[in-house]
Each structure stands twice: as C-alpha cells, then as structure tokens.
Amino acid sequence: MQKELENELGKITISKDVISIIAGMAAVECYGLVGMATQRVKDGINELLGRDNLRKGVEVIIEEGAVRINLYIIVEYGINISEVANNVIDKVKYTLEDTAGVEVSEININVQGVRVGEVQE
C-alpha cells in the first residue's frame, strides 16, 4: 500500500518504505533516543538497528487518507522516557507533514529498551 497525493499538476505516490525511512531518520535526531529497535523482542533481547535498517523499527498504516505510525525505540538510560517520546512524536509528525506532505493521524511510541550511551556508527 502507498500514500497518494493529488493536486492540479498531477498525482504523487509515496511508498510506505519511504514514509518509514523519513519517520525513522526524524526520530533518531531526537535527544535521548539511542536508536530504533526491531518490532519483535526475541528472548528478552532487542536488536538495535543501524541507519541502513531504520525502517524495520517503524510500522506505517495508511487508512482513510491519513498515516498512522508505530515507532519502536530504545532510549538512553537516565533520560525522562515520556519527554523523549513526546519529542519524537512532535519531530516525526512535523517532518512527515513538512517533507512528504502526508497527514499524520496518530503516532504510537513503543519503548523496547533502555541503554547506556549512544550508538556508534
């Protein structure tokens, strides 16, 4: 499934993968976020995703012309989790609406873990 936008000049089609990459890149720019996580926890351990796999930590659902996003994140130890989540929501919503022109109806944050320090690339 993909998001379609139309104007007087024509139609724009944006794939769910592109939306998930934009959302993931916006999220990792937020202070207190160590990185994106896989959507499934295996044996109580969650995999921290590198920049090339950010979309695996983002679920995009398109319904009734709007986009619903589920983000799976790992936060830094000692940082207020609700503050990080609110910052991620604001940043991702703004970035998607500004960059891709898609209407965001909902953003859900799933904290998959807490880690010390930030990811080294």
Results as ranks from 00 to 15, higher is better:
94 Y>R: 11
93 K>W: 06
57 G>Y: 08
117 G>H: 14
16 K>G: 03
22 I>V: 15
100 A>Y: 11
47 E>Q: 05
117 G>I: 13
47 E>R: 07
6 E>A: 08
104 V>M: 12
41 V>A: 00
61 I>F: 09
27 A>Y: 05
43 D>Q: 06
55 R>Y: 09
93 K>Y: 07
93 K>M: 08
85 A>C: 14
71 L>F: 10
108 N>T: 13
116 V>Q: 13
61 I>L: 12
60 V>D: 01
77 Y>D: 03
74 I>Y: 03
118 E>T: 15
38 T>C: 03
121 E>W: 15
64 E>G: 00
42 K>C: 01
91 K>G: 02
110 N>F: 15
98 D>R: 14
98 D>W: 09
37 A>N: 03
117 G>P: 13
81 I>C: 01
18 V>A: 11
84 V>F: 03
106 E>R: 13
119 V>I: 15
25 M>Y: 08
21 I>H: 01
111 V>W: 12
4 E>A: 06
25 M>H: 02
39 Q>K: 15
44 G>H: 01
97 E>W: 11
9 L>G: 06
108 N>I: 14
30 C>Q: 04
43 D>K: 13
9 L>H: 14
65 G>I: 07
62 I>H: 01
86 N>S: 09
30 C>W: 00
94 Y>G: 02
54 L>G: 04
5 L>W: 14
20 S>F: 07
117 G>V: 13
88 V>E: 02
45 I>P: 00
38 T>G: 10
91 K>Q: 11
82 S>C: 05
26 A>P: 07
44 G>P: 01
97 E>D: 02
18 V>P: 00
36 M>E: 01
85 A>P: 05
96 L>N: 12
28 V>T: 10
66 A>D: 06
106 E>P: 01
10 G>W: 13
23 A>G: 04
70 N>Y: 10
